[in-house]
């Protein structure tokens, strides 16, 4: 069973300083839970996302697929002149533009849920339910190599950095 040490804070700026302090002392901060995104935390925890790249690829895919479809239907499958315009016309741009956004949006939306492993009705138990309201939680994983001394040290660092409460929890919230 994995146990986490949780430092509970009630201010976003205090949390940022606390993360710095823990990291400066060689403690690995596993996660931070908050009621809203804290600016600057992503860099500190070294978190990155490749979603923009994914969206770009979806968009590229969209442009190609939609153009291929329009070209195939209008030029290859059933070439029919409308209003004296060429079969492969410039006005395809409009549909390509809009449907590219359609494909990009839909796939980005789905990617978000797939990457977050979120789906309707997923059951979760939060170690600190107030973290969706007004509490900020710094999560440090308690590994087997940690001695009692290390744990005490982490507790001390959290306390010094302004935690309002420190507790241990085996709730596996992020599965």
């Amino acid at each position: 069973m994995r146990t986490n040490i949780l430092g509970i804070y009630d201010d976003e700026d205090v949390v940022l300083k606390a993360v710095d302090k823990l990291q400066d002392n060689g403690v690995k901060v596993a996660d931070v839970m908050s009621p809203f995104p804290i600016h600057g935390i992503f860099e500190k925890l070294n978190l990155k996302t490749r979603m923009p790249l994914a969206t770009f690829l979806y968009g590229t895919f969209g442009v190609i697929v939609v153009f291929a479809f329009l070209y195939w239907t209008s030029v290859v499958s059933y070439p029919l002149k409308f209003g004296g315009k060429p079969l492969n016309t410039l006005s395809f741009i409009i549909i390509i533009f809009v449907l590219t956004i359609f494909i990009g949006t839909l796939f980005t939306f789905l990617t978000y849920f797939i990457r977050e492993k979120m789906y309707p009705g997923k059951e979760v138990t939060l170690p600190v339910p107030e973290s969706t309201n007004d509490k900020f939680v710094i999560v440090v994983s308690k590994t087997e190599e940690m001695t009692d001394m290390d744990v005490k040290n982490i507790n001390k660092l959290m306390k010094e950095s302004g935690a309002v409460e420190i507790k241990e929890s085996d709730v596996n919230y992020n599965s």
Binding site: V32, S34, P35, L47, T108, P120, V124, Y173
Partner: peptide, 22 residues
């Protein structure tokens, strides 16, 4: 309705990225 949202740092990062992308 909440899709099992937990509000951890990675979740917020993806949330903000998704919002700006959409």
């Amino acid at each position: 309705l909440s899709f099992g949202w937990i509000g951890n740092a990675k979740g917020w990062l993806r949330f903000e990225t998704a919002a700006i992308l959409l």
